[in-house]
Design a protein around this nucleic acid. Structure first.
Lengths: 341, 341
DNA sequence: CGTTAGCACTCACCGCAATAGAGTGCTAAC
DNA sequence: GTTAGCACTCTATTGCGGTGAGTGCTAACG
């Protein structure tokens, strides 16, 4: 257990380091009025905090820097509520004031605003399709040999895919098939649609429609693949302005990861409630051990409907990011409830 | 007019500089067997080429570097056809072998492959909506107070938007309106749809349907905005590995531009045929005067259906990029013709 | 006993001069 | 016309004190 003075000192160091990105010396701390002790006293406490593993020294004659453990303690015990700037509130309000759009777009937009306000990189992870159900299916002929298959989910999400139409398919047949499919498949979870298509529906179709195999094959191909959550990044270039990434090589490892959808998905905990903070090596992917990730997931009836995350250096402004994310996630959750409840 | 020897020397310098990114001295050129002269002779020629503005010297005692004019001459007169690697051909073939998808996706995918093969950044500019026409319109109710409006264009492109449904709207009415709209609006260029909606159609609708104002207002909002070409980037991180961008500040100016859709669109010439090469300051945006952009646009019956561009440092491998782009654009054009002709 | 002043010590960083090396331009000879 | 030779230029690298921020330790203070 830390003494009150130790906590004040640790707080001061973390705050200053977040702000200035340079090792903090005893003298600068002693100038603050919350910890009005002489540099010597502060030095003693700093030495203790270092023994506890909460601080680190880049080299003997430098000031102190928070360790990962130090950040963790800060986030868990010392962090102070962030007062959101009036202008920032305006910007966030705008997002919700704009004309209604689909959920995924709002999620992406929210992430974009977040990256803008924090100057970090934000990640939006779209809804996991396998938790959603089929709302509507349609097939729009484009010309003689191609058509667009459109799948609308209960979340208002729309997937579409171009498919080629086999020769000799009758338009009337297509219409009948589409109607039948809507009758039979609506309400089903997306990942079950395909199985159902093959088992029950196909037989029944055969009774009504000629050449049904071809149409079904066509549909099946339109359902296959492509139903994985979408990753949208905003403000990746913000990373460039972080002094810890003035070295291009480090930048490269981090930004490299962000282009790999799979790795990005690994970063987010499967099931989680509230705001998650992963500091440095607490993250699942080694390449971002120099970064921290703060995220929040949205769920409705236990189903994951997307995640927003903010990625920055471990020296990130935890208070601000958590504050903003908390504020926005509240609004987003009510929006979600209002739309789909 | 350059002498044959001058052309050989210029070619050698450009090729070597593209490869090694370091000023080229007379000695290393004289080792090549195509230009088997002594360093002294080469130096004389180099001095002449510099006077012509085709070469530059970073400083007195350094080797030569191609100037922008030099690159231009190289591209126009000296470039040699690129022989595409067998493996690369495989990768490109895969793109076209995969199941049929919509055009925009193919375009993006092609750009992604291009960035992968060249190690530069690629830009895909989606079809310009105002050249496309409405193919199909639909409105899928999601729950009591919201619905998804879906617009399918003649290109198979799908736009969709969540809209809120005013209270007291009858589902039957909606259906009737949708049918009427499809009858009246199909085939119209997208940018005219809205005007037509307000003028003719609205009156006619009023005769059939109660509360039509609300529905029309709803539709109008679903058409507004969002119909601008989409910019998709791939391999932006490839920029990091270019030695000319080891300085983070330069990187920042270039990558900054790429996040601004408007500026990116400015980069591409309005009407163009074949492969376009813009070297350094030939580009429309000052921030990328250090870069070259090689692009090709796809058109069908004179309508722009998208553009692919490769962005790299002026010291980029013109031969390779032009070669690959040429190869891919051929395949893409035939694909386009086959789908939509 | 906690706190603080004083002091010697450490180490990154800066500026500077010396050095090495790559490449040039020029001249004279082939 | 071509080439060898040479003086010259300029960058990049290395080495080396000087500077200053910051520390740890000790002794003195209240």
């Amino acid at each position: 257990m830390l003494s009150d003075r130790q906590r004040r000192i640790l707080t001061a160091i973390v705050d200053d380091y977040i702000r200035y990105a340079e090792p903090i010396g005893s003298r600068s701390i002693s100038k603050r009025k919350e910890v009005a002790f002489s540099p010597a006293t502060i030095r003693n406490e700093m030495a203790d905090l270092e023994e506890l593993g909460l601080l680190e020294q880049p080299h003997t004659s430098a000031g102190r820097v928070p360790s990962n453990k130090g950040y963790r303690y800060y986030v868990d015990h010392l962090i102070q509520p962030y007062e959101i700037d009036e202008q920032d509130i305006q910007k966030i309000r705008q997002l919700f004031a704009e004309r209604v759009r689909h959920w995924e777009e709002v999620l992406n937009e929210a992430a974009a605003i977040l990256s803008q306000l924090t100057n970090y990189t934000s990640i939006a992870l779209g809804p996991e399709i396998f938790t959603t159900t089929l709302k509507h299916f349609d097939l729009v002929p484009i010309n003689d040999d191609s058509a667009v298959a459109i799948i609308v989910t209960n979340m208002g999400h729309v997937e579409h895919r171009n498919i080629s139409v086999p020769h000799g398919v009758d338009l009337g047949d297509v219409r009948r098939v589409v109607n039948l499919l809507n009758a039979k498949l609506t309400g089903l979870p997306l990942h079950q649609v395909r199985a159902r298509l093959n088992s029950e529906v196909q037989k029944e179709l055969g009774m009504y429609v000629d050449r049904c195999e071809k149409i079904v094959a066509m549909l099946e191909s339109s359902l296959s693949g492509g139903i994985e959550p979408k990753v949208t990044l905003s403000g990746t270039k913000n990373m460039l302005s972080q002094p810890e990434f003035k070295d291009v090589a480090k930048l490269q490892t981090v930004l490299g990861i962000l282009e790999e959808t799979k790795k990005v998905m690994q970063l987010f905990p499967a099931q989680s409630e509230g705001i998650q903070v992963r500091i440095g090596p607490e993250n699942a992917v080694e390449e971002i051990y120099q970064c921290s990730l703060i995220s929040v997931s949205f769920t409705l009836d236990g189903e994951s409907l997307g995640t927003i995350g903010v990625l920055g250096p471990t020296r990130m402004d935890y208070s601000k990011v958590i504050g903003l994310l908390d504020y926005m996630s509240g609004d987003l959750a009510t929006l979600l409830a209002r739309w789909y409840k």
